[in-house]
Design a protein around this nucleic acid. Structure first.
Lengths: 216, 216
DNA sequence: AACAGCCAACCAACGAGTTGGTTGGACTGC
DNA sequence: GCAGTCCAACCAACTCGTTGGTTGGCTGTT
């Protein structure tokens, strides 16, 4: 958003750019970048088409900005908690499961914009920064609570595993695996399973039986 | 494919329908259903546009058939093995990681065709059938090897967790989480992590913190 | 006047799907 | 051997709805 104007004296109604972002999020979540229609976004936003071009520059730019905004939403809606990874995983899970549009948006963005964000939004940089911050926090938590230290998996990859578990579970609930044949799923059960998996992943436990010896 | 003709006496070259499927797989993997261009597929296949309509009926139908074919490929390339879930997970992982196009195809299909396959292909039915078969095999394996019986997670959800782990890891490697800030990933490490996670998930281990103590 | 916003029309390009006509191999009956 | 037929496949042009993006003119508010 370049020049966000102060809202019109039209109380009770979101500003035009806000309405556009909202409508765009819905449209993009449903149809993706290629499938989305600018006219439909304008109509949905009860705004005018050229406003989209005036504020956001174009379809792709709008897409990027919408996704970036939603990711920032996630980041401060679910703060990282190194001391309680199962809980963090569960909260992430709940956030994502409760917002199917968010998940679809991220999925679509990763498919349709392989290069990441074209707009040099802060979101790209800030997210890798936040990742290293998370790993740091995790290490710090481990130094305080030695029983969390896994002899096999170092902190950085531990985080990856946890996120992968959450991601996989979210998509499972979202019906992605239905193509591979997974029927009737209960969200509460899966959330418990996520906690369970993460608990076991982070806690010292049995070694992989026949697999290649894990490196230090 | 309705009327698959016998290949022309044009040795050394795949049949036209085969070439079309191949080209379509590449095109759809790259651009998705909405983004794919029929003309591009025809060109890539060194075939004629109307052949696509003659053989497959249209863009969407072609998409469905391509995806279904690829899923069947997966199914018999990586047979389920109830006795060695970590190994199965690792093989699934390798298959998917080695075929980014496959992953993208499945992802896109789940996004762009929410209702599953419109063509009443056998793939839809066969995949849920194969899923229940998997769960059955898993139960059977557990009855033979009681040490595999997890006191907490029943067989059906166990399978879901394993698949979710694999899926999440594959997407992590594929760069999906990069949006959420996951840098530099080593496939071998992640494969080991998958084994590791699955091993821990299926083996009796520590309970989730607030849960009841594990029974013998 | 400056500015946010709307409306309506417009444009050029694109793209799915179609059609008419052509080529060349294979098989048939004579 | 040869006309007749069938069929896969190619080519090129065409239809026609769609779509990203633009422009000019109008309204109301500050």
């Amino acid at each position: 958003m370049r020049g966000v104007p102060s809202p019109r004296a039209d109380v009770g109604r979101a500003s035009t750019p806000e309405r556009i972002v909202e409508a765009a999020a819905a449209e993009f979540a449903r149809y993706g970048l290629a499938g989305a229609r600018v006219d439909r976004i304008a109509e949905r936003a009860e705004a005018n088409k050229q406003r989209i071009y005036a504020y956001f520059g174009g379809k792709e730019a709008l897409f990027d900005q919408v996704v970036a905004a939603r990711i920032l939403d996630l980041m401060d809606a679910v703060p990282f908690e190194a001391d309680d990874l199962p809980g963090y995983a569960a909260r992430l899970f709940d956030f994502a499961v409760g917002r199917p549009d968010f998940v679809r948006l991220v999925l679509w963005h990763s498919l349709e914009r392989p290069g990441g964000f074209s707009t040099p939004d802060q979101s790209a940089a800030s997210s890798t920064a936040s990742s290293t911050a998370k790993i740091g926090a995790l290490r710090e938590a481990q130094s305080r609570q030695p029983e969390l230290v896994d002899p096999v998996v170092p902190a950085d990859r531990l985080l990856g595993q946890v996120l992968a578990t959450v991601l996989g579970s979210v998509l499972t609930v979202g019906g992605l695996l239905s193509a591979l044949g997974e029927p009737e799923i209960d969200v509460d059960e899966v959330r418990a399973d996520v906690r369970h998996s993460v608990t076991r992943i982070i806690a010292p436990g049995p070694e992989p039986a026949p697999g290649p010896a894990p490196r230090a």
